[in-house]
Design a protein around this nucleic acid. Structure first.
Lengths: 243, 243
DNA sequence: GCCGATCAGTTGTATATACGGCTAGCCCTG
DNA sequence: CAGGGCTAGCCGTATATACAACTGATCGGC
């Protein structure tokens, strides 16, 4: 293994198996089963751990998923959204002909962290409402979401967060989500969120950290959404800047 | 390991080691060395493969990087860009006080693929110029880039692509990059690009597939940039859409 | 003083083995 | 006929071992 070498002349066994499986996956439909690790080790004449390493790489790219005790299956392709327009997740899913739903992982009222105090422009020692959810399309997890609201929005706690719309709730409370700023990056899924998202630990996530302001320009919501890279995409239109 | 369980009560040994290393990494500077796999296996009383699994997860999240024969080191933090404004990579790096550079991996004149023919609105059997580069900041790879141009832009082949600016070259040829559309997602680094980017295979990449149009609205460039998630971020401003 | 060879230490790849926990299907019993 | 238990097969975690390849430091010879 060398740095900077574009194409090594040596190909690890796990890599060759990985490429062979990629070709097969292209011919299969989502949720179709793949050969087990034992079957692959027999087929390719390698140890189970080497076959497993090959599959692990496909898992981490979101091409397949594993279920303990069941097997390895082809994963579904991603969904997309325009980045300069935030619409409700469920509205967007329906627009794409998919069935949206949410799983609430945790809702808690707690003190704001210093970073949250700054971003949300809260007074010192203010409280916040923190809502942790998994967003699903057709029963497939697409994103985990951590949303933080100023404590004055405590009536959100009484809302039906699994079935209702957070944004409609905010409008009802007199705060219309109007403008936002987001930072987009990528990260690998940690163990806990990998389980929530039903992906392998290490899978690539599109990470959106956004601040939403209301009609008066006041911060309303500080949210981090972590989308499974192979199940979600954002569309952007931009100008090309010249010096 | 169960689906949907937020916090397992069983903690794998590799996971505990991973978390301990995360805490240490927070106290170190980029490029500082971490203990070797052998040292970690002694320190935590596990096999080298288990210690290695823990480090592999940190590598795949971009927190550390490995070099065969040398060791494991703390990785540098990411860079950022506004998504609604595309500026030249090198201009943006300088704006952030960093030293930009490029490594040309390959420049080739070839026939367009059907997808490229469609996106670039080329006539049938048209040729294209394909340029494959690694973009670096302070000698650290930040992105790999595959740019495809219509064949009529063949004079690009004569440009100094490692040191010069592609966009300035385009302006010289009478085509001013003006507007673009991009799709953003995340993917895990494959083996070859992982080597080019000096990250572990499987590291999360922020993937931007963009089409740039010239001043007349004609397609000029079809590019896929794959940014190391922990070395790069995009900023977006958006409106919140209501039903 | 410089260069080449060697060695120690590092990561990379691979195998074999073992046990735990989960799932689903099948069979037996009530 | 339904439910419960058992089993086979699956993935998850872990260990031990071995060899390959790379890097950098040191030492010896010229």
């Amino acid at each position: 293994m060398s740095d900077g070498t574009a194409v090594p002349d040596f190909t690890p066994r796990y890599y060759a198996i990985e490429q062979a499986l990629r070709a097969r996956i292209a011919e299969l439909a989502p949720n179709d089963p793949l050969p087990s690790e034992a079957e692959l080790s027999q087929e390719f004449g390698v140890s189970r751990m080497t076959a497993r390493a090959a599959v692990t790489r496909l898992v981490s790219e979101g091409l397949v998923y594993r279920q303990s005790g069941r097997g390895t299956f082809v994963a579904a392709p991603p969904t997309r959204r325009r980045a300069d327009s935030l619409i409700r997740f469920s509205q967007e899913m329906r627009r794409q002909g998919r069935q949206p739903s949410s799983q609430v992982v945790e809702v808690v009222r707690r003190g704001a962290t210093p970073a949250e105090t700054g971003r949300l422009r809260l007074p010192r020692n203010a409280g916040v409402i923190a809502i942790h959810r998994v967003r699903l399309a057709d029963q497939t997890p697409v994103a985990v979401e951590h949303a933080v609201f100023p404590g004055k929005l405590a009536p959100l706690l009484d809302m039906d967060l699994a079935n209702g719309s957070l944004h409609e709730a905010l409008v009802t409370l007199g705060h219309v989500p109007t403008l936002g700023h987001a930072t987009l990056s990528a990260a690998n899924a940690g163990t806990t969120e990998a389980q929530l998202l039903r992906v392998e630990t290490g899978a690539a996530l599109l990470v959106e950290r956004r601040l939403i302001l209301d009609q008066d320009g006041k911060p309303l919501e500080l949210t981090e959404s972590r989308y499974v890279g192979d199940r979600y995409a954002l569309d952007v239109t931009f100008d090309v800047q010249h010096p």
